[in-house]
């Protein structure tokens, strides 16, 4: 116990601790990956959903909206928008942008085709069926 705390002991704790906890993170990740099929709704990952995700990314939707609470906080949460608004509303909404209402936040019009709109809706349907441990707390997101 009388041992002095030396720099090399501190260094060993750093390297040892880093390796130890990184291995623990990998172990937990391994377990997570084995549990995901029960939660991540992968059985519904259709071609259309994948196209929808691609549209989601290439229009930088995350720059205004959140998806499962991650993203920008400028526009509504969309992880549950399918349950909140339904497919027809979503399509009409995207087509109707920008509203042009003075002083209000504006969403660009992305000139999506009917098929692309369906892909978006399918993507939102897929996200709404992922098990997010009951988040968001209510339908408003």
């Amino acid at each position: 116990m009388s041992s002095a705390f030396t720099k090399s002991a501190a260094r060993n704790i750093f390297y040892g601790g880093a390796v130890f906890f990184f291995l623990l993170l990998i172990a937990l990740t391994f377990d997570t990956m084995s549990q995901l099929p029960k939660r991540d709704n992968r059985e519904n990952l259709s071609e259309s959903v994948l196209r929808g995700k691609h549209i989601w990314e290439t229009r930088n939707c995350i720059g205004c909206h959140t998806l499962f609470g991650e993203g920008a906080y400028f526009a509504p949460e969309l992880g549950n928008v399918y349950t909140r608004r339904g497919p027809d509303f979503i399509k009409a909404w995207i087509k109707g942008q920008p509203t042009g209402a003075p002083g209000r936040r504006q969403m660009p019009n992305f000139n999506l085709t009917e098929e692309q709109l369906d892909d978006m809706v399918n993507f939102f349907k897929y996200t709404s069926e992922i098990n997010t441990s009951n988040w968001p707390p209510n339908i408003e997101g």
Partner: peptide, 21 residues
């Protein structure tokens, strides 16, 4: 050392609501 010991598994605070266990 403390930063990594707490921070590596601390990643978990981002995994609450995104579909992870």
């Amino acid at each position: 050392a403390m930063a990594l010991i707490t921070g590596l598994i601390g990643t978990g605070h981002h995994y609450y609501w995104i579909g992870a266990p």
